[in-house]
Design a protein around this nucleic acid. Structure first.
Lengths: 210, 210
DNA sequence: GTCTATATCGGGATAGAC
DNA sequence: GTCTATCCCGATATAGAC
């Protein structure tokens, strides 16, 4: 029974089609919102007939749930940057690096998440109350430890975390506005590097870690 | 002709009905997005039959445009806080105060704006390219002046402005997430004061103005 | 598993009485 | 100026052939 060891050809194509659909859905949900997105648009972008989407995902909402869940997982992994550090300069700096990179690589996912939260998190409220709450308390504890050790000023850990989320995600969520103010051109490699440097510099000096 | 001097009774009621519709629309657009909002929902919330909305605003999009324009105006007025100051502590501090107060008083408008920009600003792109661009350049010049005067560190003015927008608007746009992490309770007066203090402290120290 | 054709419903917009 | 009834389109979801 090789199926248990290695995915069969059938399962492989299934995964591939699923990835195609999810990528298309992420983009369309980000650009049009849940209400504005249509299964037809997603199907067109994925190069599939509309009926196939319903074969892979029973409803529009089920497809949306999967898209939101994926960006959440990506963000949780960025937490490791914070955890494995001994000082705020290294920990917060690496976290900003990681979050900025995610904003650049996954702008659609970031927007879908933002939209979901703005609408009151109807689909992922359970994540907020369990996983995110635990995550936040853990990081807040780490920050308090740095403060106790005299490695940074006594700032409120929660508000610091909100600032980290806000500033980094802003480059994804408000990317269109930033691009417009950049003369209509997308940020270059150097622009992204400068943005990351600015954010790190202001925040690290702001918490008294520099 | 008193009509030219003082609004007639007819015009007064018209204004009042318009305000009622706009307030309801702001809330519904914020909570459901443009695509998810329905004229029926807005009408119910305003306590009016659906047809009346179309009497006051020809289309759903026209109504939406008005809502987006209003929050933009409010934000532009907050700019005065920045302009009338002689030093960054006063100017940036007052701007943060003003923006945080707006996040608290107009969370729906902030969300509608965020949603609009995230979707590529299909309706207010002209504002971004004219008014907002001019506004931004003006404020950036003021910041450069403070830097030249040695009143703060040489940070990139644009990235500083993005950080100011991101951090302050986050309390409106992601208010639901913050509330959830606050134990499900809305921020109290003291919570808002503490948030504003944190933001000001970190950013002002971060730019070397303290 | 894939696609075409279609049922069904909900929402924007309007006609026309009052 | 206000409201009821209705038109009409577009979107989700499905039936059923291949």
């Amino acid at each position: 029974m090789p199926d248990a060891v290695r995915p069969s050809k059938r399962e492989e194509t299934r995964r591939e089609t699923e990835r195609t659909i999810l990528a298309a859905a992420e983009k369309v949900f980000a650009e049009a919102g849940f209400g504005g997105a249509t299964m037809q648009l997603i199907a067109d972008m994925a190069g599939l007939p509309k009926a196939n989407l319903h074969y892979y995902f029973p409803t529009k909402e089920a497809l949306y749930r999967r898209v939101v869940g994926e960006i959440f997982e990506i963000w949780l992994q960025a937490a490791e940057a914070l955890d494995q550090a001994q000082c705020p300069v290294e920990g917060i700096g690496a976290y900003i690096d990681a979050k900025m990179e995610i904003s650049r690589r996954h702008p659609f996912g970031s927007k879908v998440w933002a939209s979901e939260v703005m609408h009151g998190a109807p689909v992922i409220q359970d994540y907020l109350e369990s996983t995110l709450r635990d995550w936040t308390e853990g990081r807040a504890a780490a920050i308090r430890r740095w403060i106790s050790n005299g490695q940074m000023q006594p700032v409120d850990p929660h508000h610091l975390l909100y600032m980290l989320w806000a500033t980094t995600q802003h480059y994804a969520d408000f990317g269109h506005q930033i691009e417009t103010l950049n003369g209509g051109r997308p940020l270059s490699d150097e622009d992204w590097a400068a943005a990351t440097r600015s954010v790190k510099e202001i925040i690290l000096r702001g918490v008294g870690a520099l």
